[in-house]
Design a protein around this nucleic acid. Structure first.
Lengths: 218, 218
DNA sequence: GTCAATATTTTTGTATACAAGACAAACAAT
DNA sequence: ATTGTTTGTCTTGTATACAAAAATATTGAC
């Protein structure tokens, strides 16, 4: 299923935005990007329009496209929606999950645990992703699964940041276990509530982190 | 905020898909569309890519784009997600809604009621839209509001169809009232549950409607 | 020196030209 | 007859050319 160049370029530009090469508010010059990627303006424009639709850049007609990092308020809102979506996944999964999937969640949690003990942040991050992906799938609603992935992907850079906070890993682990326990009991409401709090706290932590970095933001 | 031609064309093509001019599975020929809209292929391609991202058409690289109407399973999934999103709006709104907004909900419901009495389906549809839009807004989360609008828009053609079912209007009205009542009591859980059922039933009704139209689909 | 009006340059949006992959038809070989 | 190859056409993807709007620079008046 060969991808076209404009799609690849879109991902590359996304990377440049995430790693800070292209800063917030910066204008993305089409000819500049064209020469950087050694293509014409056409695939660049297509890539930019894709990014504009996914919300990563803002396109002002006849003026250009600009990097648009979400501000603190929008970020909190996005985390709130993520929390609610994952809570829905958890609630639905409680009645729909298979035994095999439950086992996989246990396995993933075990690996996660090991990563925490080894202080292996990368390993934790990987297994954590897997845990959530499994839950999206077990919602039994593939449209919901897609939507969750979309938002998850969008929040990924911020999520990763806050994981570095002290003590967060262990707390997160115990939340994972509580979620699995609730799923085993078929208790959708509890699973949803724990999951909601599990994600929401990330938004809050992130908010505090940001506040501490930019002290005089008022 | 002048829109560009490709955006306008995207909406037009969307309309052609909704009203059935472009049938499910049909290939959208770029040059054909170009001559139809009397522009070059460039804005057509941009429009098609936008539609591909919003899920209305599928783009197979090097092969073309095809109309992709959601099948019954995907539709049910989408309605389920819509139900959950609106339930979240209701629950959040229960603690965040303003008195002024509550009054507006009452007003809208009154107009809705009048439309039901007058058997004015269009009027009902309009006020119903307004009711839901108000709730999205009162979730106090503008990102959530946007997401709701996105999905709502996507489901609109199907939603409208099932509204024609006998007795649905009155039932829908009483659900609206129950939601407002729960919001007035600040009872988020009840508001969420009623709202979830309110939307979910649309998906089910639609499903039955489809099943009755295509009898031998098994 | 400041401001306004105009000219110049940039940059976006659109049209057209070109390249290359996908599809179809004709033909050859077994 | 069926399979495989080849050639030809069609369609998509990309490059380039052009038009129009916005940004910028320049000139002139006060």
């Amino acid at each position: 299923m060969e991808r076209k160049r404009s799609d690849i370029i879109a991902d590359e530009i996304e990377g440049l935005i995430f790693d800070g090469t292209l800063a917030d508010g910066e204008r993305l010059d089409e000819v500049q990007l064209a020469s950087r990627f050694d293509v014409s303006r056409t695939p660049i424009r297509e890539a930019l329009q894709r990014l504009a639709q996914s919300g990563l850049v803002e396109q002002l007609p006849r003026r250009g496209v600009f990097v648009r990092q979400p501000g603190p308020v929008e970020l909190i809102e996005m985390f709130e929606v993520m929390a609610e979506l994952e809570a829905v996944c958890a609630r639905l999964a409680a009645t729909r999950i298979s035994d095999a999937a439950l086992q996989k969640l246990h396995d993933t949690n075990a690996l996660c645990d090991a990563a925490v003990e080894a202080n292996d942040a990368n390993g934790y991050f990987r297994e954590n992703e897997r845990f959530h992906a499994l839950l999206y799938r077990q919602s039994g609603n593939s449209f919901l699964e897609q939507e969750c992935f979309r938002l998850h992907r969008r929040l990924q850079p911020f999520r990763r940041l806050q994981l570095q906070l002290r003590g967060r890993l262990r707390q997160s682990m115990s939340e994972h276990k509580a979620i699995v326990a609730a799923l085993e009991n078929g208790d959708g409401e509890t699973a949803a509530n724990v999951m909601r709090a599990h994600i929401a706290v990330q938004g809050e932590k992130f908010h505090h982190l940001m506040a501490s970095l930019k002290p005089a933001a008022e």
